[in-house]
Nucleic acid binder design. Structure first.
Lengths: 226, 226
DNA sequence: ACCTGAACACCGTTCAAGT
DNA sequence: ACCTGAACACCGTTCAAGT
């Protein structure tokens, strides 16, 4: 009915940056990084593959943009107040959960080093580090250590689930076979990995991730006390 | 001259797993992950692309194998004695340098999650963690936190240099433009990143990396004191 | 048992031609 | 200004045919 308003009568199905990115996220969630294809994407958007290039530079930019909207969404959700330490922990967990739900995010975050999504993240981490009272000189190192750790865990887990997916295995089944492989390693060369293989299938990734965050936070606290 | 010895007179140019992996490493070093192609590889080995499949399952396995030989080489070099803490630090730095010299290694290590190269690494880290006196319960979390951090930094730096390479920029020039971009961010939204943008081009990646390792080690030490 | 290399089924990206 | 879709220059991988 709003036909009189100047010329906002854009077609219902008009292409746009956001519509493309949303469709890309759906493809990535459904089929992993291999599932995102300009042909599949243009089919879903009912257009030709060339049309997408009117809105996005190339596939890399598309992946980064998809990652960016999810990071932004995740950071928006995790406002909260409480202590800086608690803020860092909940922020980290929110990212862990997002990367767990969207296994392609980890790799995308790595690829986007220095670009928008990691800058968003670095900002939030940096503000929290400042609030923690870390002295100016150490803020950058602390924030980027957290960033690298978070991204490292995320992309590692992503690779695991991609590996399992490629072989058509469920995650726990994959961890089971991995644990069996580890248990059969040479006892002289791999004592630690062998000793730890039994707890591999049952262990809680999320808790381990948080334990790593706590180690960094503990290191920051003990450095301040001195 | 050794022509009499049974039938070890294999052709000088015979294909083998090791020869293929060595050639792959050269291609990866020269052209990054995009530089590794079955066609380029078979050309360098003076054979057809199909021949490689007699020795290696697929491209993923080739990448993991290439990464594995470099990780093994790096770990062999870094024996040393001294304190467990010093051992962890030198081990971490050796890996940093290897990933700096071979920027594709970081991504390959991620892709090989749970497989040979990361198992090697986890073993060494785990042994050092044990030597550090970390109680049994916390050993896995500590070792994998270090692993994830190391891999996170490595793949992050790799992405940076890949990004710069794709645009034909030298690394420092790339950091310069990145720093300028950061300085122009919205002051209300990005106070931390802006405040830190100036030190971006001049900062020492290697020192920052080590600072992160020290934070984790500090966290471990303070957890033990309690 | 290993190699050869053409062929297959895809990619991302470009670009003339349309509207 | 945007879309269309055929075409280009690649990929990884397979497989009949050779040795």
């Amino acid at each position: 009915m709003a036909t009189k308003a100047r010329n906002i009568q854009r077609r219902e199905d008009a292409l746009s940056h956001d519509r493309i990115v949303d469709a890309a996220i759906e493809l990535l969630d459904a089929g992993g990084e291999d599932g995102l294809t300009f042909r599949a994407l243009s089919e879903r958007l009912a257009t030709g593959p060339g049309a997408i290039y009117n809105h996005i530079a190339d596939k890399d930019a598309l992946l980064v943009a998809a990652c960016d909207t999810l990071v932004a969404r995740t950071l928006d959700a995790g406002k909260a107040g409480s202590s800086p330490r608690a803020a860092i922990r909940t922020l980290a967990l929110a990212l862990f959960d997002a990367m767990d739900a969207h296994p392609w995010m980890g790799a995308a975050l790595v690829r986007a080093a220095g670009q928008s999504p990691s800058v968003r993240l670095l900002e939030r981490l940096g503000q929290a580090i400042q609030a923690l009272g870390v002295p100016r000189k150490g803020q950058w190192a602390a924030a980027s250590a957290l960033l690298h750790y978070i991204v490292g865990v995320g992309s590692h887990n992503a690779a695991q689930s991609q590996f399992a997916r490629a072989r058509g295995l469920a995650r726990d089944r994959h961890l089971g076979t991995l644990s069996a492989q580890w248990a059969q390693l040479d006892a002289a060369l791999y004592p630690f990995v062998r000793s730890v293989s039994a707890q591999l299938p049952a262990h809680d990734d999320r808790a381990d991730f948080l334990a790593g965050i706590d180690l960094v936070l503990g290191g920051l606290a003990s450095a301040q006390k001195k």
